[in-house]
Design a binder for these strands. Structure first.
Lengths: 159, 159
DNA sequence: GGCAATTTAATTGTATACAATACTCTGGAA
DNA sequence: TTCCAGAGTATTGTATACAATTAAATTGCC
């Protein structure tokens, strides 16, 4: 164990991303304050504005969230009048998330507000695209590693 | 409101970062499973390994977390034997977080495990540095915008 | 020296995340 | 037809986050 290098917080990419994620969260929270939406609620609404109605499962795939997170989140969105949750007629296991009239009405207002705030960030489309593609690479690596570790576990079990 | 562009989740930098942050979280959670540390607990330990003892406030500045998050987190670390929380003699408002002997003993083991996992990510130091500096820019923008919005609020109040 | 303003932690309340479990429903196999 | 494996959602339990408040200690200012 003598060949171990110190791990310094300031050099960790994970912490940069963790910190940036929290700042974005805070940024959107205040940008969306007039609408009373949190950041996770907002991204759920983004997906729904694209293609509601969706089942909880479909929404979860898009957001990478499971029902443990989405069920209470959607109940809160329902209570605040953004969505309605309707048990599917054709398959009673599924719950379809529909937009309310209010959600449809307010969509462009939210889009506009977000657009204004993003302008304030002052990043070009190219800069944003470049960063996002780097992030895709990182995420793929993380998925691959997780997968490798999973395989490793399986191998372990067989020994 | 006719001039509003749709906001698509896939084009949002915030979501890329949010998603990457969750993947890192999951990655470290499983990498650190042998030690029973969560990701936030791990970064707290990183800072403490650099310069314990620290007050809750000092640790919070480094991690960008407040006592509302840190107090329970540190109590869990204490219960698991990583740290001790000691009320300062010279200023009884402060609580000093010390490393336990176990924490000191296991430090290099954790460093080594993390080093191995990072190698699996397959990113060069240059790639990581480049990404981190871009993230610093984004975070500075987010802070600036938040600050602008704060000023705007103050101005509002005076009207 | 005495007291208001500040500092520091802890607490409270709300909202995510996510693993693990429970429960209901569906479709297919025997 | 019955039974059951699997799918879809909800629930439970644990751990963050963070705003707002509380409580205790300290500092600064008169």
């Amino acid at each position: 164990m003598a060949d171990v290098n110190p791990v310094l917080l300031d050099e960790q990419l994970c912490f940069s991303i963790y910190s940036a994620s929290k700042k974005f969260n805070h940024f959107y929270q205040s940008a969306l304050a007039p609408f009373g939406l949190t950041y996770p609620q907002y991204i759920a609404m983004l997906v729904l504005w694209e293609k509601a109605p969706l089942t909880v499962h479909q929404l979860g795939e898009r957001l990478e969230l499971d029902s443990g997170t989405l069920t209470p989140l959607l109940k809160r969105l329902e209570k605040q009048g953004w969505v309605s949750r309707v048990r599917s007629q054709t398959d009673e296991r599924q719950v379809l998330i529909h937009l309310t009239e209010m959600a449809t009405t307010k969509r462009d207002e939210v889009y506009s507000r977000i657009g204004q705030c993003q302008t304030l960030l002052g990043m070009s489309t190219e800069e944003i695209d470049s960063m996002m593609s780097e992030l895709v690479t990182v995420k793929e690596q993380l998925d691959t590693v997780s997968h490798k570790r999973l395989i490793a576990k399986e191998v372990d079990k067989t020994n």
